[in-house]
Design a protein around this nucleic acid. Structure first.
Length: 531
RNA sequence: GUCCCUAUCGUCUAGAGGCCUAGGACACCGGGUUUUCAUCCCGGCAACCGGGGUUCGAAUCCCCGUGGGGAUGCCA
């Protein structure tokens, strides 16, 4: 069967890096398997879902090249189907009404299957028992059993579980007499009757567990006596995430569900829902979380982890994509910079790690620099121009002036926001290196030489890079400076910076008049210092 | 509290019982190239969470601790 996966974000706020990483893995998996990558917007939380968030999400996906197949499914338009599914579950006795709220309306609970193996998802582990606090009563109700266990200190610990978790339940008094037998009363309980038993000191039951084989984490299981029945329709009639999610996955005929590992606990229930709804159970793969520099999972509140922010901060989509794909996955060899086709070819879920990964801003930056370096010059100019726009507007620089500077600076630009540092090519209004400018420009012999440089440059017939270099060399010799010793002061005077691209070319790009003017002005700005 | 998951350099990772004296990358520190800075090249620092098993042999398998995360919602 052809692979069909989906990315199902809820459009509340901006997409963060953890969400989009999930999308990337789904996409990679789908493309590798030559299957389909579907998109479903889980916008059932009308309070918090906004069109703006949906637009931003689509924008981020397009930016990263996450193309999806087919039509987008909007979950909010499918509540009728969800409710129908709940009704169907009730008819099959897989669901029941809970206690009505103040307004008299009842929520609907999904009942963990009391009998059967749920299509191979439930297995019997064996007999089990648990000490109880005899001072507390045990309640056996249609929505499960509640009882009080014993804590290490001997105080009562309230606990509850679904009926399915305690098949063959028997309650015993401290002296061993049997107080209650579930099997003989099961039908009554299922039909709505509630029993209360006092004085029980021990419970014995048959332990059963839900299990499945996770594509990433391997076999996972959970004893049913640790699981409670789940509400699937609220008392106001609206479907809950679990129901909607499963019903929509069935509708979209999803074959593999790849999502964050904060969902593993839900999976046990979702599997049972699939089965109860008569649908084949999909394969699951749970991705490790991405944590921030503090080692904590990114939350929607983490302002610095929004995908859009990486874009505005000057990262390239290819670099972010590549970096994120490597968070929790590796191709198995030493490759770290991979193109999308290479990633698609190498991507398999069994190579995904199962422990959390921390985002390393340094490594991302380095990778971005690698991608920037290999951009075609025209592309670099085009992209860089967008980031330079605010500065360009302020300085009245047009694209034709920007282009040669950008081409010249590309190799040393790692992040597009760095194009703002090109400012000194166009404007005399730049910052001087606070430490080195006063130091170098204050030296008497340097000041004298700088004046000579300004004069020589002013008299130059051509201002090509080679000519500039020749002039600098000549003045250095004439003023008694070793070759290269004047470069730093000249750069400080003409650009304010202590380092930068090749000086001759930099000066040539800035232009003769400006350079000469700047050198002379710098000498006025910084006084002579004899010390 | 209970249940589930998880654990290799600071960080991302390779590692499926002998190829491990634990490899690569980022960061960091040296050196070289660059008359500067960055790139680039060379070198260095740096890890199997702890304790028990199993085995001729364990980073790899099992158990117990400990740390981290998740769940325990009429949130998604």
């Amino acid at each position: 069967m052809a692979v069909r996966v989906r990315f199902a974000p809820s459009p509340t706020g901006q997409v963060h890096i953890g969400n989009i990483r999930t999308a990337i893995f789904n996409w990679l998996f789908a493309r590798h398997e030559k299957g389909e990558f579907l998109l479903r917007i889980e916008d059932t939380d009308l309070e918090r879902s906004t069109q703006d968030a949906i637009d931003k999400l689509m924008d981020c996906m397009a930016w990263l090249g996450l193309d999806y197949d087919g039509e987008v499914m909007y979950q909010s338009r499918r509540s009728a189907d969800h409710v129908v599914a709940a009704t169907e579950l009730k008819a099959k006795r897989f669901a029941y009404d809970g206690k009505p709220d103040e307004s008299g309306r009842a929520p609907v609970y999904f009942r963990i299957p009391v009998a059967g193996d749920a299509g191979g998802a439930i297995r019997t582990v064996g007999p089990a028992e648990r000490e109880l606090d005899a001072r507390e009563t045990v309640k056996i109700a249609p929505d499960g059993v509640s009882f009080a266990g014993l804590s290490a200190k001997g105080s009562p610990m309230p606990m509850a579980c679904c009926l399915a978790g305690v098949r063959e339940l028997k309650l015993h008094a401290a002296d061993g007499t049997e107080l209650f037998d579930l099997e003989s009363n099961l039908e009554a309980v299922l039909n709505g009757e509630t029993f209360t038993v006092a004085g029980a000191a021990k419970m014995t039951f048959l332990r059963r567990e839900v299990f499945y084989r996770d594509l990433i984490k391997g076999e996972l299981s959970k004893p049913l006596d640790g699981v409670k029945d789940q509400i699937i329709v609220r008392s106001d009639g609206s479907p809950v995430f679990h129901l909607a999610n499963v019903v929509d996955d069935i509708a979209q005929e999803v074959t593999h569900i790849i999502r964050g590992d904060d969902h593993v606990e839900n999976t046990y229930r979702h599997i049972l829902l699939f089965h109860a709804l008569g649908a084949p159970i999909p394969q699951y793969g749970h991705l490790p979380m991405i944590v921030n520099a503090a080692g904590k999972p990114y939350s929607k509140r983490d302002g610095d982890a929004f995908v859009g922010d990486f874009r505005t901060r000057g990262f390239l989509a290819e670099a972010l994509f590549n970096y994120l794909a490597l968070l929790g996955w590796s191709p198995g060899d030493d490759r770290e910079k991979l193109s999308k086709p290479e990633m698609i070819a190498a991507f398999t879920l069994d190579r995904v790690k199962s422990s959390a990964a921390q985002l390393d801003a340094n490594k991302l930056l380095n990778l971005n620099g690698l991608y920037v370096a290999e951009l075609a010059p025209e592309t670099f100019v085009e992209l860089g121009w967008k980031y330079f726009l605010p500065v360009a507007a302020e300085l009245r620089v047009d694209r034709a002036e920007f282009a040669p500077v950008a081409r010249f600076m590309q190799s040393r630009t790692k992040l597009f926001t760095q194009v703002a540092e090109y400012r000194y090519f166009f404007s005399d209004d730049y910052e001087f290196d606070a430490k080195n400018a006063p130091k170098f420009l204050g030296r008497p012999e340097v000041r004298k030489a700088l004046l000579a440089v300004a004069a020589a440059l002013d008299a130059a017939k051509s201002f090509a890079a080679e000519e500039v270099a020749a002039i600098l060399t000549a003045v250095e010799a004439a003023e008694g400076f070793a070759h290269g010793k004047l470069f730093q002061p000249v750069r400080l005077a003409a650009t304010g910076a202590n380092g930068g691209a090749e000086l001759d070319q930099t000066l040539a790009l800035i232009g003769k008049e400006r350079v000469v003017r700047r050198i002379r002005r710098a000498l006025e700005l910084f006084p002579e210092r004899t010390a």
